[in-house]
Write a protein that binds this DNA or RNA. Sequence first.
RNA 1: CGGGGCGUGGCGCAGUCCGGUAGCGCACCUGCUUUGGGAGCAGGGGGUCGCUGGUUCGAAUCCAGUCGCCCCGACCA
Length: 576
Amino acid sequence: MRLSKAFIPTLKEVPSDAVVTSHRLMLRAGMVRPLMAGVYSYLPFGQRASLKAQNLIREEMDAIGAQEFFLPAINPVEVWEETGRATDFGPEMFHLKDRKDRELVLAPTHEEIICSVARGEVRSYKQLPQIWYQFQTKFRDEPRPRSGELRTRQFIMKDAYSLDVSQEGLDASYAKHDGAYRRIFQRAGLNYFVVGASSGLMGGTGSEEFMVESDAGEDTCAVCHACGYAANVEVATSNLVEEASTEEKQPFAKVLTPEKRTVEEVAEYLGRGTDKFIKSLVFMGDNGLAMILVQGDDEVNESKLQQLMGASMRPAHPEEVKEAIGAEIGFLGPVGLEGKLPIYADNRLKGKVNMVTGANEDQYHVLGVQVDDTFKPDSYHDLRVVAEGEPCPDCGKPLSVVRAIELGHIFKLGTKYSAAMGATVLDPNGKDVPIIMGSYGIGVGRLVAAVLETNADENGAVWPMTIAPFHAVVVGINAKSDEVTAESERLYSLLKEKGLDVALDDRDVRAGFKFKDADLLGFPFQVVVSDRNLAEGELEIKRRRDGEKLLLPTDEALAQLDEWVAEEWQRVSPEA
RNA sequence: CGGGGCGUGGCGCAGUCCGGUAGCGCACCUGCUUUGGGAGCAGGGGGUCGCUGGUUCGAAUCCAGUCGCCCCGACCA
């Protein structure tokens, strides 16, 4: 590609709407342009990155025997009503009508369509297993698109579906995808980790998310850099061990704490640490109100609490609390409430002495609360959010709590969709059984964005070889020099013959302009041709990753470049 | 859906409080000079100030409504 002919509209100034690194870079490097909230046009440079990512994914999918499809993005709503997901997705699904007033939807995912194909064609267990996949534009009317390509309303997803007759078959298909995904993210140069996840709207028996650590991420995970433990904080645990207190027990007492409601306020007012408090919260669950207790410096983990109180659990309204307990939120505590409503305490509170908590009387707190003595909770559970630095549940080393981007999600779906849609096969006993399915997704645009989030510096992108729109650029300084032009053209052809995707910066612009663009666009390698160096028979090569520049006799420079290229590929080889 | 912010040449912004008919930087066009890290000088083109209505002699500016975009939260691959 000759940059003099290319449409790569780079921006010197940063568009003010862009906040996260990948979004700023994708705009500045001329990869994408916004059309409306959460919808982007991919320009040639961005499209090249997207295609590189797609081809990488395609290679690994094909390697596990998956077959590529292309399914309709526009569907009749009836297919979605068969499984009940027209309702489940609700306003997140785009609806439209055709000229005959038939109701249509834009597909947010494709389980139903896969089933519609399978139920018409797959009759026997002998035709299974199958793995079917596609790259398809998905539409989801997100409540809040954000962070550029990280959460959009229209996006390309690689989605795959496995069809099996047995649980063992599903396990095998799932394992294949697990392996393929690890190779994909490894080869994309991403430092990924895998966490167990809830299956959410998809249903099914098990699922894992492939995450990449990034401040731009929307998920929060606890990870152990020592042993590899990783979990979404929604489910993460730690191995906190509480030492038995040697404190002498203080007498129970009620104190006036006017208008001090939060643990922080009361702690400051009474001059005690927040760890000496019992935080008391009231939630409404499937079986009515319950009081939840955690230590004052902990946060309640609502995901864990849902296991106890039901999925529709919510914080109680202030009126409900006032009516049930007779005190305002801010002055609540477990003392004296035993039997009135269930009291669930976090494990960490077990045996704590001299604690402070609300008196269940407005403007008062109580001191000298001895857990299991002054009051006794109905039961103990893990109800807290894991915090930075706590011991890893597996190895005991300190955990990190990090933000992460979810790049891929693999599910063991089971028969939820096949059963609902009548996608069945005859098993070896001649019995009609629903196909056992798995579903496996990777967001392509999100993957490209994640690569940029983790591979960039203040000057621009630093692409890994696998995703780089071009591997190298030949920069001819002074387009008016015939010698520079001739040598640039020679090197451009030479590097292409070596199998590199190479760009030639033959634009008639100043050297500094080209260098800035080359860094911004993030070509892994820059080859600089100038009259100055040509006169000495020398060539300059630059490696984008560390900025190393070498000026060597031309042949040596090219040999060095070969070495660098090999090293750069090695970084993203699956064995690395 | 709740909270906050912003809509002014292609991009980034000032002007809005306190009404008087629109300005700066970048980009673009012409010329000369320059040529290894987003050049300098001179000249030039380009804007119904998101939209609708209202107040006023007069509205980018004040009032009402509306649309759009961004951020935080809720929610969600």
